[in-house]
Every structure is written in C-alpha cells, then in structure tokens.
Design a binder for these strands. Structure first.
Lengths: 307, 307
DNA sequence: TAATTGTTCTTTCTAGACAAAAACCAACCC
DNA sequence: GGGTTGGTTTTTGTCTAGAAAGAACAATTA
C-alpha cells in the first residue's frame, strides 16, 4: 500500500500557511493551494477536509475561513512526511558511510529490508538507482556487493570531476558580457563574502552554497551527463559531511576562500587563472575526501557468493 | 513468481555440451557442470534430473553416462531463456528507437506493462536503471517523461565521449613498452584487417569489435565512471544499429579504416597523431548518429502531467 | 464563461506472496 | 579427506493487490 507521506507533509505545510493568515481570513482556492503546496488538488481536498473536521477552517466550501490561526491541530511528526524511498536512501547512506561498511561486503536485500523496516521492493528499487554511483555492483540471481568507499573511489571520482569542472569553467570564463550568468555569479560571490563573515555560526550552510556554485559553473554549457555526475557529487558530499564533523568549520572556511579566488579569476575573464584556481580548489576537496575514506582491506569473509 | 529462464538456458546449454560428448561417455561432476554452465549446483541438479527423466543420461548419480548424444530431448525456445528484465530492456529500446517515440511523450508504467506482458514492477525496475542514460526523467508520484532521442542527446553524449576517449588515448600512447596492452592492441589490429578483407559478408561483426576496441583503450587507466559511461554508448549503439541498416556496410568499412589509423597512431606512440585520429573517428561516428536522431518537435500534447 | 468545486477514473507506490535459484550443511565414498 | 552427492535454508525475481495521489471530466456558481 502507498504511504500517505505526501498528505502529511502537505497538511503540515498547510498549517504553516494558515498560521501566516489571520483569524477570520478566507482561504485561497483549492487550485491555488494545490500550486503553493506542490501537490494535486485531490490531496489538497483531503487536507482541507481534515482541517475542517478539526475545526481549523469553517464549512462553506466556496468560502472557507480560518477559525483558529494559532493553537491549531497537532502536526504530523517529521519522520512520517518522507516517502519510503527517501528513507531507504538515508538509512543506506548511513549504513555505508557512518557504519563504515567494509569493501567486499555482500548486500542482502532481505536483511536490509528487515533492518530498515520496509519491503524488499523498496530496497531493490533503491539499489537499482544507486548502482550508477559506482559503489555497488550486481551479481545476477545472487545479490549485490559493496565495493567500498575507498581511496580508489575518491580518486576516480575526482578525476572525472576535474575534467568536467575545467571544461565548464573554461566555457564560463569565455561567456559573452551579455550573459545573465555574470550577474548570478556576482550574487554568489556576495553570498560567499557574507557567509565568511559569519563563519563561526553558519559554517553548516556552506554545503548548500557549494553545490549551487558548482552547478552554476556547469550551467554555462549544460550537458545532461555532467549534471547527472553532479548528482553523485552532491549526494556523496551531503551525507559524507553530515557524519564527518572533524575540522568542519575550518575546512569550510578554506573552501570559501578557494571559491572566492576561483570566482575572482572567472570575473577577470582569465582562463589560465581560472584553471589554476579551479585545480587548487578541487585538489584540496579531494584531499579532504581521501582523508576520510575507509580504506581498510577487503573483508576476509567470502566476498559475495561465488559459485 | 520467478521465471525459470535460468534453468531453461542451462538445459539447452547442457544439451549442446552433451552432443559434444560421445554416447556412453561419462558426464563431469555436478560442480564442474555448475562452473561450465555458469549456474548454481541446484540448477544443475534440476537439469540433470530432467535429462535423466528424458532418458538422455543414465541413472547412477555417481557415474552418469550419456545415452543418446544425437537426437536428444527438444530444446526450450530461445524466447523462454531470457529473463523478464532483459526482455523489458529489448522491448523498451524497440519502442524508443524503432517506433521513434516523440520527445516529451509521457511514459505510462501500467500501459508499458500491459504492452510488454509483464508486471509493473518489472517496468519500474527497468526505468529506474535506465534513468542514468539521460533519455527519461522522473516526476515523483506522477510518472516518467521521455526526453527524446534527439540531436541534443547525441551532441551531449559525444562531448563526454570525446573527453573520455582523448584522455584514455593519451594515457594509452604513453604506456611503457612492457605493458601487455600493446600486444592486445596488435591482436585487435589484426582482427580489423581480417574483417576489412571479408567486409562484404561479415560487416555485422563490426559492432562487437568496435565495443571491444574502445574498451581496450579505456583499460589503459581504468575509471569506473568512464566504464559506466561506455555502458551507455554500447547499449545505444547496439540497439541503434540493429534498426538502422542504411549504408551499414559502407559505414562500418569507413569506421574500420578510421580505427586502423587510430591504432597506427597509438602504435607509433605519437600523442598528437593519436589525438588527430581519435577526433576524426569520433566526429564521423557522431555524424552517423546525428543523421538518424528523431529530431521532431516535442509532442504538442501536454508534456507529462503538470499540476 | 471562466473559475471553482464535486465526482469518477487512472496511475503510482508499497506491501506481501511464492516459486526459482543460490547457498549452506550434512552425509557419503572411493 | 578432498571431492561428490543429498537434503535444507535463505535469498532473489516476479506477480498480484490495494490504498494514496494524480488527472480528467462534469456540475455549479458568480
């Protein structure tokens, strides 16, 4: 059966929305709500009827009115608002990065399903999508092998990343003056400067800024395969940095400064300067990642199930 | 329920194997058969008991003997020996490339399942794996959109392909004399020369040779992401050329000659020469692909299901 | 008549079931 | 005692089912 996480998240969002409205104010139409909550009208109607049943909005469908803006119904817990698929991703990344799974470990669909509390279908679907990240491999009729979050993985990842990023940076630096990207990168520079000023409190915010910066560079000449590759980078870094807090503030400060020289070089329209700054930044990012790879020997227990 | 395609293929292979043995000869052990048929011993035992029931081999398990080497039991039809997943791939590629699906077409899991005669699960699994090929895109809770086998796709594909192949070719040309790859590429050159001599009859064999050649180049410095990208190339070309027979003989002849100059350049250890030959080959391959892309306008009907 | 709500139909997501295939363990045997 | 076969257990591949979410169509209201 499908979970109703979409409904629950929409319901919570609707409560937020209502609390911004005053008491006695009228609600927007179902279509408008559908757009602002990002769900279908069917779900909006379910939310509205739940709200009406709880006495938060008044009855007339043509003219719904907010009854109690504050102290409304209780929200659904955060955990119930994420789809199974998303939860599987989170739990798997946790298993892999935080629990430091050994290279060569056999992945058992059934066991993971039990461990994560979902059906095997959900695990299979995730593993199939995750395959492209190069960290697992399938043995037909047998199962999956975890190849390990190793130095090799980091090196291969960064070899491609450097090729792609240099290519995009060169294109970016050669962009015509009329390109709207110049304005966007100046805005991003400002964001970097601001964040640097408040680095002590806000260093966690760098992760998102980093992703947006690199994706902006790539947007100079869009290529779906490069975009797809950046999904890998983003996912790995997102989870990796969530569980590797060592020197986080300092690492991020260094990275921001590297970004700033990189941006300066781009704004200076100098391709050699850009390349230098880009290479320097990627080299230090690579070092950070390598330092935390679990480069143990492959598990001594039978690797997978050989025939 | 699981299909028994593994058993049926193993059974057919076992018949082939037996026909190579004489009548009265004794069969290898279950373990040996398991290795040579590429299935588990469980499946081997099922095959053996079927064979015994059909009177093809004698009874004593410790010493099985071939009864009738020729005129044995009837083989299972080819179609029953391929797993559902593989059939879905074939049918989908057919739908996409041969039936020339329009860019923007919504992909309906249920409809495809009905059309292909499999359960929706099979379709979902395929689509999830196929997503990385950059030809489809997912709308959560809604469905998939086919982005089209367009000129843009071909251009983006070849931009990456050129980056990867030039990188690998440069590494290859700089390989030490002691590398075993030099011997391998000489063997491949010989295969090219042979095929060129018999091009009139054997031009279909080029597809496989092409794939092996490019994968050899890439093996000079293995990178899982490049390997993964070559899976895309291989799949696209495999199916594409199966349904685009126009000028096939001539196209392949040209490609073989290009490969040969490419190989000569590599054997000459000349990086500039190698780059030139590599670029020339990829440019003509790109032209071929572009010429056959379905570059129609996106379908005018609602693209996907917007909210 | 254009936007809004009501109703119905379709499709996606997830659980659950079950045979096929693999893996494991025990007995056997020159 | 290492290889071989006989049972048993575990896991994978695929189908079916059913509620949630989306989409389409009809009715209604201003």
């Amino acid at each position: 059966m499908k979970t109703d996480t979409v409904f629950k998240r929409a319901f919570n969002d609707a409560l937020d929305l209502i609390s911004k409205l005053g008491e006695g104010e009228s609600l927007p139409s179902e279509n408008t709500l559908s757009a602002s909550l990002g769900v279908s009208r069917t779900t909006v109607r379910k939310v509205l009827s739940t709200l009406a049943a709880g006495g938060v909005v008044s009855g007339d469908p043509r003219h719904r009115i907010v009854r109690t803006a504050h102290d409304p119904m209780h929200r659904f817990p955060e955990a119930e608002t994420v789809a199974t698929a998303a939860q599987v991703e989170k739990r798997f990344m946790e298993w892999m990065l935080r629990d430091n799974a050994r290279p060569g470990t056999a992945i058992n669909e059934l066991e993971l399903a039990r461990q994560f509390g979902v059906a095997t279908t959900g695990i299979r679907e995730f593993l199939n999508r995750f395959q492209r990240f190069g960290l697992i491999e399938k043995r037909p009729n047998s199962g999956w092998v975890f190849k390990g979050f190793t130095i090799d993985f980091a090196l291969e990842l960064f070899e491609i990343r450097e090729m792609f990023e240099l290519r995009s940076a060169r294109v970016f630096a050669a962009l015509p003056e009329s390109s709207p990207l110049w304005r966007q990168i100046e805005l991003l520079r400002a964001e970097h400067v601001t964040l640097l000023g408040e680095i002590e409190e806000r260093f966690h915010d760098f992760s998102d800024l980093d992703s947006r910066f690199h994706r902006l560079i790539n947007s100079a000449a869009p290529n779906r395969f490069i975009d797809g590759f950046y999904d890998i980078i983003t996912l790995i870094f997102h989870y990796h940095y969530q569980w590797n807090k060592r020197d986080e503030r300092q690492r991020n400060e260094v990275a921001i400064r590297e970004h700033l020289s990189y941006i300066e070089a781009l704004l200076g329209r100098s391709i050699p300067e850009t390349e230098r700054a880009c290479r320097a930044h990627l080299a230090s990012a690579r070092e950070t990642l390598i330092r935390s790879t679990s480069d143990k020997q492959p598990a001594t227990s039978k690797p997978g199930r050989g025939r």
